[in-house]
């Protein structure tokens, strides 16, 4: 589909907005519908859209496998790290109240980092799954 002019132009127009919308969903999740899961899936969907138009090989150069695999693991580590940070500041595991002198701000900080971790893992896993299926079909056809 690399030579389809309509797809390429529309893709170039849409993909930045898809990624921007994902960031909006991620960081506005406290005030409206949204959060880490949705943002991660939308980021993955934007990149998969790019891969459908320009091919998996091109996408693998821009978003390499090692980056995706690092995302996959680091999201869980960020989440667990927030829990450990709660322990270090003298609270319980995953206790956000101690993360800041002001307990409510501490909650906000904890929720923010937890959502970042969730989004990282989810988008990494979704992208990795897509890469796996796409590279299989590429090698056989």
């Amino acid at each position: 589909m690399k030579n389809d002019l309509v797809l390429r132009v529309i893709g170039k127009l849409l993909i930045p907005f898809i990624l921007l919308f994902a960031l909006y969903v991620q960081f506005h999740g406290d005030f409206g519908p949204g959060g880490g899961f949705q943002a991660g899936v939308i980021i993955a969907a934007g990149i998969i859209f790019y891969a459908l138009i320009h091919g998996v090989a091109t996408t693998r150069r821009i978003v390499p496998d090692c980056l995706v695999e690092t995302m996959l693991a680091s999201g869980v580590l960020i989440y667990a790290g927030v829990g450990l940070a709660g322990l270090l500041f003298g609270g319980n595991y995953l206790d956000y109240f101690v993360l800041d002198p002001n307990p409510v701000l501490g909650q906000h900080r904890g929720i923010f980092w937890v959502e970042v971790g969730v989004a990282t893992t989810v988008s990494g896993v979704m992208l990795k799954i897509y890469y796996m299926f796409a590279s299989r079909s590429g090698s056989e056809d």
């Binding site: 999740g29 406290d30 005030f31 409206g32 519908p33 949204g34 959060g35 956000y96 409510v104 909650q107 906000h108 929720i111 959502e115």
Partner: peptide
Amino acid sequence: VDVPNVVT
């Protein structure tokens, strides 16, 4: 926790 979206 002062986050309007209760689900989050």
